[in-house]
Amino acid sequence: MAEEPEKTWQWVTVDDYEKLAVPTTIKIKKWWKKFVRWVTPEQEHEGEEEQSQVLELSFDTAAETLDDCFSDWLNDDDDSSLRWIIAPPHSGVEEAVQKWAEKHSLAEVSLPDRESLCDPDDSPMPEFSPKSDDNNPWIMPQLAHSFLRQTNGLRWVREFFSQVLSGEAGKGVIVCDSWAWAFLEKVWPVPVNQLWTLQGLDQNALEQLGLARGDGRLRALAALSRGNAGVAAAYSDRYQRGSEKAFDTPALPSEINDATAFVCYALLLHRGMTKTQLVQALPIVSGSQLEIQLQVLKQRALIELEQELWYVTARGYPVVRDLLMSRGFWLDRF
């Protein structure tokens, strides 16, 4: 893959984030059919093999761009402020920040055991590295993994907010999934400064990354992915340009009920959960119904199991987001 231009990855404050104009996935499918006949001249198909391999993205350049953005703050020993980074699912934000943090040897804040958060007899407290004279910064790798949306499951994250916003914890970087952040903003409604994310990728940026060719295809891919790099890559069947099914999305189950939506929302809100954690966070869904929902959604390629955690897939994310929006759930801002 050709080297990415410097402007492909841009870190912006959340207030400056520019949303792409996004039709629904149904409109995209209809829109795509209008473009498919002229996206690529017929002769360009000769000699190309049909390929559905997903393009692997590197976030090294995004990490380098973050270094340019945060270097002054990082090197200022007198500045003990915080940097908050919001990471939409599959966007690559978390991966880029992790590369940057490893480069600068930032100490990680230990995450609590989520399954023990609901035990009222256990009082987990955030633990930070001891402060030093040179004010070494720390990083919270994923705030979404520090709570469960349950009566007792928010104790740790409330204490975390109390410590970091009071200045007790010193200088640090907090990474949080965008769905978790939309929820936590209401749990702890204290405005924070320096809230950052990666700008969504438009059709020009997608072209630079090699995700697609042809103006119509690029526009459709940018719209479907909402500028999300990981979602766009999941639909990057780069050589199937003559097929109307190039961006075919996973289908929802034939029967959608409240349990379907609750499970999908919980997985996004917590950025992945074990079955045990789902049971703790969704007491209104019976064990048998939960198992049915997990298996049906998995068969539809809307969710997947990875290292005991259930996640919404990159290909399924646009479909799940549309489902939750149609049922009035509180969405992230991306």
Rank of each mutant, 00 (worst) to 15 (best):
K7T: 15
F329P: 13
N75C: 13
D322N: 14
Y311E: 11
S110Q: 15
P112R: 01
V285H: 02
L224Y: 00
Q194W: 08
C69T: 12
L331M: 15
Y17R: 10
N75D: 12
L302D: 08
H145T: 10
V164L: 10
A169Y: 05
G167R: 09
E207N: 12
G153V: 07
G227C: 01
L294R: 04
L305H: 07
P112H: 12
V54T: 11
V22D: 08
E3S: 02
V164D: 10
A233V: 02
Q299D: 10
I139H: 00
D258C: 03
N75P: 06
Q150G: 07
Q299A: 07
W179M: 05
D122N: 12
L278N: 02
R300A: 14
T8K: 04
F147N: 00
L309E: 15
W181I: 01
S81V: 00
L290G: 02
D67F: 00
R213G: 07
F35S: 04
I284T: 15
T61H: 12
T61Q: 12
P250D: 05
M1P: 15
K245S: 09
D248A: 13
L82Q: 06
W73A: 04
N136G: 05
R114D: 11
I284E: 14
L165S: 15
E50W: 12
L148E: 02
P137A: 03
E6V: 02
V285D: 01
P141R: 03
R114C: 11
D177S: 11
E168R: 13
H145N: 14
Q203C: 02
W310P: 01
S105W: 04
S288E: 15
L294N: 03
I284R: 14
R114S: 10
F147P: 09
D202K: 04
E244P: 08
E46D: 12
L148K: 01
Y239G: 08
K27L: 03
W196D: 04
N152L: 10
G172R: 10
L154E: 15
N75S: 14
L106V: 10
L165Y: 15
S326F: 09
L154Y: 12
E255G: 05
I256C: 05
N193Y: 12
F35N: 04
H270D: 06
E46M: 03
L66Q: 00
P189V: 08
N228V: 00
R321G: 05
D76R: 04
K103E: 14
V192W: 07
V12M: 02
S123I: 15
R158S: 11
W310Q: 03
G172P: 15
S162M: 09
G210P: 13
A169Q: 08
L82R: 07
A107R: 11
A220I: 05
A259I: 08
R37A: 11
G230T: 04
L154W: 07
V39S: 07
R226T: 01
G214M: 03
K275R: 14
W196C: 02
A246Y: 00
S166K: 14
A314L: 04
L267Q: 04
E50F: 12
F183T: 11
P318E: 06
K7M: 13
V175I: 14
Q163S: 11
Q307L: 07
N135A: 07
L278T: 01
Y239P: 01
P137S: 06
F183I: 14
G242S: 09
Q307P: 03
D322F: 05
M140D: 07
E304R: 11
I256T: 13
R217G: 06
